[in-house]
C-alpha cells in the first residue's frame, strides 16, 4: 500500500460506490488505483484525504475478508467528512493506513460476545459482526445492542433487519425518541444491557459510540459483572498523522492512534472521567 518509508504520503484510491445511508451519513466503497490493498483488522482506521481539503481518520466498516473494496461509513460533520460524503463515483481520494489496533477477535473466540453500539458507532463494529456471523460456531451467545437518535438515523437498517431474523444472534435496537409508528424500544441503549443474555464471567464486550454513551455503557456492563478488562471501547480524538507523531490524539498517557483506538475499560475509566483531558 502506501510506502512505510514515507507514512505521511497517501495512496490514490477511486470511489467505486457511494450509498446514502441516513440524512447525513454516506458509505463509500474505494478501490486503490495503483496499489494492492493489504486488508485490515476490525477496529482499525484509515486516514482519508480529499485533495485540497484535508484528511480525517475514518474506521473501516466493511467486510474484513473483502480485500477488493475499502469500505468506510462517514458522517458529514466537518469540512473533510462533508467533502468525503459529497464524492461521486469515479472521484479520487487519498488513503493512508490501515492504522491502529483491532477489536479482540481472537480473544472473543469461545466466549459470549456483547456488542453495544450507538449512532455512527455501529460502523466500526460492523466488521466485528461480519466476523462473528461468519464464524458463529466459535462463539457463545452473540448480542448486538444498538442505540440511535431516532428511527430515521438507524444505520444499516436493512442489514439489521436481516440479522434480526437469525436465531443465533440477539439483536436489540432502541432509539432515544420516535414517532408514533415506531414499535420498538425507546430509551437509552444502556437500558438494554440489563436484559441481555450473556455469562458475565465468560463474556467480551465491544462498545463503540459517542464517548458519553460509551462511559455509561461500560459502567452498565461492569455492573452486570463483566470485568473491566473484558470491556473494549474505541476512542476518538483529533488526529493529524495517525502514526503517533503529531501529538493531537493524546488522552493522558495514551496516543489514541498508536496505542488504540481500542482500549479496555480498566485503562480508560479514570482517563474518561477526567474532564477535558
Amino acid at each position: 500500500m502506501f510506502d512505510l518509508r514515507d507514512p505521511m504520503v497517501p495512496a490514490v484510491a477511486r470511489v467505486i460506490r457511494s450509498r446514502h445511508e441516513t440524512a447525513d451519513v454516506w458509505t463509500l466503497d474505494l478501490e486503490l488505483v495503483d496499489a494492492v490493498w493489504p486488508g485490515f483488522s476490525p477496529g482499525q482506521f484509515n486516514m482519508l484525504s480529499v485533495f485540497g481539503v484535508g484528511e480525517a481518520p475514518i474506521s473501516f466498516s466493511g467486510e474484513p475478508t473483502d480485500n477488493a473494496h475499502i469500505v468506510h461509513t462517514v458522517r458529514a460533520v466537518g469540512p473533510v467528512s462533508k467533502a468525503l460524503c459529497h464524492l461521486k463515483v469515479g472521484d479520487t481520494v487519498g488513503v493512508r493506513g490501515p492504522f491502529g489496533n483491532a477489536w479482540p477477535m481472537d480473544h472473543a473466540r469461545g466466549r459470549d460476545v456483547i456488542v453495544v453500539a450507538g449512532g455512527l458507532g455501529l460502523a466500526p463494529v460492523r466488521p466485528v459482526l461480519y466476523r462473528l456471523m461468519a464464524d458463529r460456531r466459535s462463539h457463545g451467545r452473540v448480542t448486538l445492542l444498538y442505540g440511535a437518535r431516532n428511527p430515521g438515523e438507524i444505520l444499516y437498517r436493512h442489514e439489521i433487519e436481516k440479522w434480526r431474523t437469525r436465531l443465533d444472534i440477539d439483536v436489540e435496537v432502541t432509539v432515544d425518541h420516535a414517532t408514533a409508528d415506531w414499535r420498538g424500544h425507546v430509551g437509552v441503549v444502556t437500558k438494554l444491557i440489563g436484559r441481555a443474555r450473556f455469562d458475565p464471567a465468560d463474556a467480551v464486550a465491544i462498545v463503540c459510540g459517542p464517548e458519553v454513551m460509551m462511559r455509561f455503557a461500560a459502567k452498565a456492563l461492569a455492573d452486570s459483572g463483566i470485568p473491566e478488562k473484558e470491556i473494549y471501547l474505541s476512542m476518538e480524538r483529533n488526529m493529524k498523522c495517525g502514526i503517533g507523531l503529531c501529538g493531537h490524539c493524546q488522552l493522558g498517557p495514551l496516543f489514541i492512534c498508536r496505542d488504540g483506538p481500542v482500549f479496555t475499560q480498566d485503562r480508560l475509566r479514570t482517563l474518561m472521567a477526567t474532564k477535558e483531558l
Binding site: 485533495f51 485540497g52 503529531c246 501529538g247
Partner: peptide, 25 residues
C-alpha cells in the same frame, strides 16, 4: 514536537499540496 497539516489548492485547481506545520496544544 506537535504538528498539524495544511492542505492548499492551486488556483487553477490542477494541483494541491499538503504541508506539515508546528502546532501547539
Amino acid at each position: 514536537f506537535c504538528t498539524t497539516v495544511v492542505d492548499e489548492s492551486a488556483l487553477d485547481g490542477a494541483s494541491a499540496s499538503r504541508s506539515q506545520r508546528w502546532d501547539s496544544c
